[in-house]
Design a protein around this nucleic acid. Structure first.
Lengths: 201, 201
DNA sequence: ATGAAACCTGAGTCAATGTTCAAGTTGCGC
DNA sequence: GCGCAACTTGAACATTGACTCAGGTTTCAT
């Protein structure tokens, strides 16, 4: 975990860097398994193996730490999906690969999912920002693809929201709840749905 | 609000029925505006105009009331959408009408949205049940429509999850966050997307 | 009318936990 | 090695809010 910019008060020694990283990892685990309100600062510091007071050396409050984590994870998912998609030959292939990578990522990092979704209630502005950033990428990708004639033109922002909602729910159902289909299979079904349409061709 | 079966301890007099109904309406408002954890029992009883202790005449705990509310609202949305859709000539028309009705309903009952989504963390089993019930309807509707040749055959459960996710996010974006497009416009874009497909026809 | 059941009241109890702080320890530039 | 800044510690503080309960009031079947 890259620690830069995540704490309000940056550590200035190697010891401090190490402690901060352990706190962040402990926090991800604590928030991820217990949820924001059930999570206790003592739980985080115990997981990190430090005393309670040490927490406040790096963070002003429980909420501030949570916000930092949301931003960090938002960045992680986007980066991971972007990486997976970078060699895709066209938009539809990119969508398929991206959704596969997203579901696989959720399976590997279940805490991420819970933290970002709970931000809806704990830090609504961070939650909103997360999806606004995501949708902006979609909007530009769809517009560029339409320009190239790979897909039909349309209301890109709204189509972006539709595609994101689809991905989020498929991630929840097939990434977190149950794994009765592989990420690849889920992505195939979903992308066939939005590329060919319910009417078929 | 129909009050039957919502309280653990059903009232036996007209006065009790009235008090219970006021508590439920107050709770919807309190949970809807403040969220589960910020919501206070005293806030609910104050809104309802009764003493704190009265709450416990009808509910065993804060969580039990919340669960009852989730079940009630889950039922409300499904009933409302089903009603709107009942005269649709075919599946695609039904999807369009249903999504329009859903977004309009969200606009009219913003508290509903917040309560059901927060159930994800407060009462995960109720949340899961809500969407499992929803998806089951989709699955059967899609299968029947494929049977009639209105749409191509496919993996109906997974397509159902995709369509639900789409609807939920569009409801959040265009029903709760901002209203820069009408429910009808949003539904047109989304249903065109999933019926004609990104490739167009 | 009457009495028992239903209902209402709200001060008090109790547990949980986020945050502070004063004192101690460690690391590092010089 | 000195001394200061960085870091650590955990007991104590303060708030909050769910839930209890003993006693009072209202309703209603008879």
């Amino acid at each position: 975990m890259n620690v830069d910019g995540l704490a309000a008060k940056a550590p200035r020694t190697a010891r401090g860097q190490n402690t901060l990283r352990r706190l962040l990892e402990a926090a991800a685990a604590e928030f991820g398994t217990r949820g924001y309100h059930e999570a206790a600062i003592t739980g985080i510091t115990q997981r990190a193996g430090v005393a309670l007071g040490t927490f406040y050396t790096y963070f002003d409050s429980k909420e501030e730490l949570f916000r930092a984590l949301v931003r960090d994870m938002s960045h992680s998912v986007r980066q991971h999906v972007a990486e997976a998609v970078k060699d895709a030959p066209d938009r539809l292939a990119a969508e398929r690969t991206g959704l596969t990578a997203f579901i696989a990522f959720v399976r590997k990092h279940p805490e991420l999912y819970r933290i970002i979704e709970e931000a809806q209630f704990v830090a609504p502005d961070e939650y909103r920002q997360h999806y606004l950033t995501f949708v902006d990428g979609y909007r530009r990708n769809l517009a560029a693809a339409a320009e190239r004639g790979e897909i039909v033109a349309g209301a890109d922002e709204t189509r972006g929201w539709a595609l994101i909602g689809m991905s989020v729910f498929l991630g929840m159902r097939y990434g977190v709840w149950d794994k009765d289909l592989s990420p690849q299979e889920v992505a195939d079904i979903a992308i066939t749905l939005v590329s060919e349409g319910l009417k078929g061709r």
